[in-house]
Amino acid sequence: MLELRLVQGSLLKKVLEAIKDLVNDANFDCSATGFSLQAMDSSHVALVALLLRSEGFEHYRCDRNLSMGMNLNNMSKMLKCAGNDDIITIKADDGSDTVTFMFESPNQDKIADFEMKLMDIDSEHLGIPEAEYQAIVRMPSSEFARICKDLSSIGDTVVISVTKEGVKFSTRGDIGTANVVCRQNTTVDKPEEATVIEMQEPVSLTFALRYMNSFTKATPLSGTVTISLSSDLPIVVEYKIAEMGYIRFYLAPKIED
């Protein structure tokens, strides 16, 4: 028996919008730790890892570890039927081939339940080792989204370089080139407006902008984004989900032939 009650149901709606275009089908894993997901895109270039900790739910009952295979597009269709202020409860019985999403309006005058068919998904779980990153950049998520969108109108790939001068995003295409440099800036009114660069050593890596733009669909989840870079490791683009956990996107770099 599984019953997870999330008062801020809009978080789950936003999570689905953030990942449904990257991943088609995924197993949601439920354990005492929380509600989590790890999945790769169909070309195995990007990986998404989601954690919503059990403490973040108003009610969290998970009698035994459960893995539920869901089509994310179908799940998104169902969650779009929940109001932004609704409380969402996820329910499943042991051995059932369905999951139920229950939506309650804030004043309890409307209660809806949507039952969705589960699916068997054969996916392998990857071990993500702890790594020391050469550079970690924290910046406003809206700024990062803007840069990725702007650069993708010029080129297909972005070179992200961190030096002591700052973080540089560069692209080139048929019509020309573009460079955006963000310097460390901590003299801002609100902490989420800061750009903070922690660099152990300079690093420069190339990534496909198509994936970066897909990751920025998580922007509504967090005011800041943290980008971790190391030579010969996938980049990590992390959006913290307030008091609940995170959504992390990993993207393998492109290398010169």
Binding site: S43, V45, L126, G127, T206, P234, A252, K254, E256, D257
Partner: peptide
């Protein structure tokens, strides 16, 4: 020409 690497060449099952 740059070549796209895959996640599975960095992270292993487990």
């Amino acid at each position: 020409v740059s070549q796209q690497r895959q996640i599975t060449s960095f992270f292993s099952p487990g």
